[in-house]
Amino acid sequence: MHEYSLVQALLDRVESEARSRHASAVHRVTVRIGPLAGVERELFSKAFEIVRPGTLCDRAELVVTGDDLRWTCEVCGAAIPTGRVLVCPDCGWPARLASGDALVLERIELEVPDHV
């Protein structure tokens, strides 16, 4: 259950951004979590619900987007289907993870007082 420590890191990052921009609240936070990120999206969202009270994210919406799992050949770029042996059937070269391990804070939407 490392999702709590990840959410804590997320809140620290978001709050420091919010403070530096004199935001009164955080409106929405968007993170991208791939299937090979090693993070359960549902647990992550639950951890966010539990950790956020009393923070600038108290009323913030958490949007978790996904990421495609794609392995490709390092040499010829051919797609290698997930679940198969991770070797290019044409070149015999090991596959490379093209996408699927993202664990990224994409965007923060802040409520900033008009006079700031």
Binding site: L6, A9, L10, D12, R13, E17, R21, A23, S24, A25, H27, V31, L103, V104, L105, E106, R107, I108, E109, L110, E111, V112, P113, D114, H115
Partner: peptide, 20 residues
């Protein structure tokens, strides 16, 4: 209290950037 406006900040940073 004053109105607020929405400010969108694109971050595109790994959540584990601090650990990294």
């Amino acid at each position: 209290c004053g109105d607020t406006r929405l400010v969108s900040v694109d971050v595109h940073e790994r959540l584990l950037a601090g650990n990294d």
